[in-house]
Amino acid sequence: RPMNAFMVWARIHRPALAKANPAANNAEISVQLGLEWNKLSEEQKKPYYDEAQKIKE
């Protein structure tokens, strides 16, 4: 299954978030990633939607 825009973004940002929160488990990191993603504007998300579309094609 191809990655969606959030997954493209999260793949880039997960390592830094995990390093900054070494005690957090994957579920907690995923929740935090979701919160951070939701704070982004549509303009900030656009490159990730574009990349996800390329992956689908």
Rank of each mutant, 00 (worst) to 15 (best):
E36M: 15
Y48L: 01
S41Y: 02
M7T: 08
H13S: 04
N21T: 06
E42R: 12
N26W: 15
G34A: 15
D50E: 13
V31F: 13
V31P: 00
N21E: 02
I55G: 04
A18I: 14
K39W: 03
N38L: 12
N25H: 05
M3T: 10
G34F: 15
A5L: 01
I29N: 01
V31D: 06
Y48H: 01
A52T: 03
N38V: 07
K56D: 08
V8T: 03
S41D: 06
K19F: 07
L40H: 01
G34R: 15
W37E: 00
N4L: 14
E57W: 05
L35Y: 09
W9I: 02
K39H: 04
M3L: 13
A27T: 09
A27W: 14
S30I: 14
A10G: 02
W9N: 01
R11L: 14
I55V: 08
E57L: 12
A20D: 05
E51M: 15
N38Q: 10
A27C: 13
G34H: 15
A5G: 11
E36H: 06
A23D: 14
Q32D: 02
S41R: 04
V8I: 15
M7G: 06
M7C: 15
A27K: 11
N4D: 12
A20Q: 08
V8F: 11
Q44L: 05
L40C: 02
K46A: 08
P47F: 07
Q44N: 04
A18W: 05
P15G: 08
D50L: 13
N21A: 04
N38C: 14
G34L: 15
N4E: 11
N4I: 10
K45G: 00
E51F: 14
P47D: 03
N26T: 13
S30R: 11
K19C: 09
Q44D: 11
N21S: 06
Q32I: 15
F6D: 01
P22H: 03
A5P: 04
M7W: 15
K46H: 05
L33M: 04
V8R: 07
P47N: 03
R11G: 08
K45C: 01
K39E: 05
L33V: 02
N26S: 12
P15Y: 12
E51Y: 14
E51N: 04
P15C: 14
Q44P: 00
W37Y: 01
R11H: 12
S41F: 02
Y48S: 01
A27P: 03
G34P: 02
E57Q: 12
N21H: 11
A16T: 09
W9C: 03
P22M: 03
V31W: 12
K54Q: 08
Y48A: 00
G34D: 11
A16N: 06
G34K: 15
Q44E: 13
P2Y: 13
K46Y: 03
Q44S: 06
E57V: 10
E57F: 07
M7L: 13
A10M: 07
A5I: 02
D50K: 11
P47I: 06
I12Q: 09
A18K: 14
W9E: 02
